[in-house]
Design a binder for these strands. Structure first.
Length: 766
DNA sequence: ACTAACTTAATTTTT
DNA sequence: TTAAGTTAGT
């Protein structure tokens, strides 16, 4: 974390000086490091593997190592450092510069590195050209939708989204062309192969790359015979890769290609924090590293400087339940700290209100809003907490969520810029050819696409050509004329500053007026967003000397969800657990820790749905969340959750029971749960969890509401319920526990039915 | 070709 | 609940 906000400065205390290391102690780059950290910083040539637990000062090690390499004679541009977010890259750059007062080396994400490399060299990989466009998910899905239509496939069975995911998975394994797919005879495989082939051709025609292409084509640049790889190997004497547990195979190959000769690859990470395997990340890259670099030196950092001991015990207790891991417990010399609070609420509203209330208390104490974060598993859960914070007048910022650059109005304006940059980007062209509306409908678009195909021209060429345009019906023709005029006017402008280009787009299209006309209440917000885009362009012009349109477009395409987050402002930060990776806050709230949410899916009622690997990744996600907290941690769940606007019963996550550290004194406070807690039936589970205040059913045998008749059962016999299909009825019996509980319900009209609580969309009436 | 009214699907997580 | 996609009427 950056230290601009004093409330979030790392709590690292200077560790004791290692015995017999006077020389080291005198070195300012080593003075504040513990022996293991020093070892990593001082390690000279050759591969280095740093297993760094949460809060163990990993970033410190990396920055100090870079600084040391430079001080000891390595040229700054002889070092390449890869981080997980652009924000982390920026902070690392600042830190290195602060340590040495020199220009920092090349630090960026894999994707940004690849984009920069490709801008320079992609001409070697025809038909791509330097002004390629980076497609985001939406662009990719739009193209796939077209392909699915073109292949006459059932759009339900071949949803663009899952198709995109599948394509990405394949690419992450290193397959780029359909021809490289292992051939099997199954119909689905053949269809997939054909779709992939069409997708590849479509992207090439458009001179467009998706996120995976950036990496894959970089590998291809390096493996296509030329002097290029040698040149970069020569340049990057040292390569460092952070968050190694979340790199994929293609990224591995990039790192390996660069360092196969020099052997100077340093990787840092923590297998317990691997949370992106769904995106192709492959933690076995650690193993691969040790195979490919058998001489690697290994350093483990397990002293935590961030969290209180209670928080750490909670984290250790959770992660210990993962079987697929090397045992590793974090330890700390930090104070014991406050108890970790686990709280249950009736519904999301109460949960949010309670969190807001606690935040208020913290604000009144020593913790400003900027010291506090709220994490959730899915973005949709930000709503309720936002509402509560607004109600309490607490300033907040949602990190990530619906990304700014994905907003419709922003993408429209960007589409004008993209078609300027890359005339082959027909996806962008089609987006704006009739936006603002100029009477160019689907029929005209189809026709233009057809003519383009037969004349072997781009659609833009057809639109720009007087001759082709003349063949359209008069209304569409006038619209196309108008578009062509706008395009020509914009095209004549210089490619920088970008700000002027944005202005020109807005002016020539009357875009703001268009918003006012077509949008109702949201018009103002959308206009504000367009204004923010102007700011972003101006800011880019200022910050990047020599930057042009291409640079601006690739930068915003590769922004990570935390990149736009200004952590210097004093606001509560709201984000997903995924976005929380790498961050830390004095106080952390994790909400919605419920079965089916965290772990997401249906693991408890339906253990087969999520396999063990998925479950363990969910557990790591919680572990990441817990270990973000420095002093205060509160974890909440509810008994009822709105699903698609309808209330549905919710059950505590199985992970909650795991938080108890059996081997040491209690660090968890599961008491004080509001209302409802009528007390548990017999705390028979022994010392499962220390509960101080009003005990709730954490103490019962399974951590869930029982099968009995007390206030803990959301649907006791006699309860009246409503079902969307069967109408109203009365619960007459039940069997089983938690979400798996089977209820027998006598419906007034439909008769008696058995249903599983977790699946049935039941609402209690009284 | 455009608009308004309808249906329906979606919730992982993100470069 | 909400957004996006579909259909029917102008």
């Amino acid at each position: 974390m950056d230290s601009k906000n004093p409330s979030r400065r790392p709590v690292q205390t200077p560790p004791p000086v290692a015995p017999g290391s006077d020389a080291s102690a005198a070195d300012p780059l080593l003075a504040s490091l513990n022996p293991a950290q020093r070892e990593a910083v001082l390690h000279d040539d050759g591969p280095l593997l740093v297993i760094a637990g949460a809060g163990s000062g990993k970033t410190r090690v990396i920055t100090h190592r870079i600084a040391r390499l430079i001080r000891d004679g390595t040229a700054a541009d002889g070092i390449l450092a890869i981080t997980f977010t652009n924000k982390a890259a920026g902070e690392m750059r600042d830190r290195v510069e602060a340590l040495l007062g020199v220009r920092s080396p090349w630090i960026s994400t894999f994707h940004s590195f690849a984009a920069r490399l490709l801008r320079r060299h992609i001409y070697r990989l025809p038909p791509y050209s330097t002004s390629f466009t980076i497609y985001d998910e939406e662009d990719v899905e739009a193209l796939l939708r077209e392909i699915v239509r073109g292949m006459d496939l059932d759009p339900a069975a071949w949803a663009p989204r899952s198709l995109a995911a599948k394509i990405s998975m394949v690419k992450n394994k290193g397959v780029h062309d359909a021809g490289e797919l292992p051939l099997r005879g199954r119909y689905e495989d053949q269809v997939f192969q054909e779709a992939l082939a069409r997708y590849g051709r479509g992207m090439q025609e458009r001179n467009a790359l998706d996120f995976d292409d950036l990496l894959l084509l970089t590998v291809r640049l390096f493996t296509t015979p030329s002097d290029l790889l040698d040149r970069y190997r020569e340049q990057f004497r040292y390569v460092l890769i952070d968050e190694y547990q979340d790199t994929n195979f293609v990224q591995y190959r990039i790192g390996h290609a660069l360092t196969e000769k020099s052997r100077n690859l340093c990787v840092t990470g923590d297998p317990d924090q691997s949370i992106y395997s769904w995106r192709g990340a492959d933690p076995s890259n650690f193993r691969r590293f040790e195979t490919d670099y058998p001489e690697a030196h290994r350093v483990t950092l397990d002293q935590n400087y961030r969290s209180t001991r209670r928080i750490l015990r909670c984290a250790n207790a959770v992660i210990r339940h993962n079987s697929d891991r090397q045992p590793k417990d974090l330890w700390s010399e930090n104070p014991e700290g406050e108890r970790v609070r686990i709280r249950r609420f009736a519904d999301g509203r109460e949960e949010a209100a309670a969190i807001a209330a606690r935040i208020q208390e913290l604000n009144d104490g020593a913790k400003p809003a900027g010291a506090i974060a709220v994490f959730y598993r899915i973005n949709a859960f930000s709503r309720e907490i936002e509402r509560a914070l607004i109600l309490s007048g607490i300033p907040y910022v949602v990190v990530g969520g619906v990304a700014f650059f994905q907003r419709r109005e922003v993408k429209d304006v960007l589409a004008y810029l993209r078609i300027l940059s890359n005339p082959r980007d027909s996806q962008s062209l089609l987006r704006i050819i009739n936006t603002p509306a100029r009477r160019v409908g689907p029929a005209a678009v189809d026709r233009a696409a057809e003519r383009a195909a037969t004349a072997r021209l781009s659609i833009l060429d057809v639109v720009l050509s007087e001759a082709h345009r003349g063949t359209f019906p008069s209304a569409a023709r006038r619209g196309l004329d108008e578009f062509a005029a706008i395009y020509r006017q914009l095209h004549a402008l210089p490619r920088s500053p970008v700000f002027s280009l944005v202005e020109a787009v807005l002016a020539s299209t009357n875009y703001v007026q268009h918003i006012q006309r077509s949008e109702g209440e949201e018009a103002n917000e959308r206009i504000r967003n367009v204004g923010e885009l102007e700011n972003a362009a101006a800011e880019y012009d200022d910050r990047v000397p020599g930057g042009d349109l291409d640079g601006f477009l690739s930068e915003i395409a590769l922004l990570t969800s935390v990149d736009r987050w200004d952590d210097r402002k004093d606001r509560v930060s709201l984000m997903t657990l995924h976005s929380a990776k790498g961050l830390e806050f004095p106080a952390v709230f994790i909400l919605g820790v419920e079965d089916g949410i965290l772990p997401l899916g249906r693991s408890r009622l339906n253990p087969d749905a999520a396999d063990k690997a998925d479950l363990e990744e969910e557990r790591r996600l919680l572990y990441v969340g817990i270990t973000r907290a420095r002093e205060e941690l509160m974890i909440t769940h509810t008994r009822e959750r709105l699903r698609f606007g309808r209330p549905a019963p919710a059950f505590p996550s199985g992970f909650l029971e795991e938080m108890v550290d059996h081997d040491s004194e209690p660090g968890i406070d599961a008491g004080g749960a509001v209302e409802l807690g009528k007390g548990s039936r017999g705390a028979s589970g022994g010392l499962r969890m220390e509960v101080e205040d009003s005990p709730n059913d954490f103490n019962s045998d399974d951590g869930f509401g029982g099968d009995g008749d007390d206030g803990d059962d959301p649907f006791p016999p006699g309860a009246r319920v409503r079902h969307p299909r069967y109408g109203e009825g009365t619960v007459v019996g039940g069997w089983g526990l938690g979400a798996r509980r089977r209820l027998t319900i006598r419906f007034d009209r439909a008769g008696e039915k058995q249903m599983v609580l977790g699946f049935a969309k039941l609402m209690r009436i009284w």
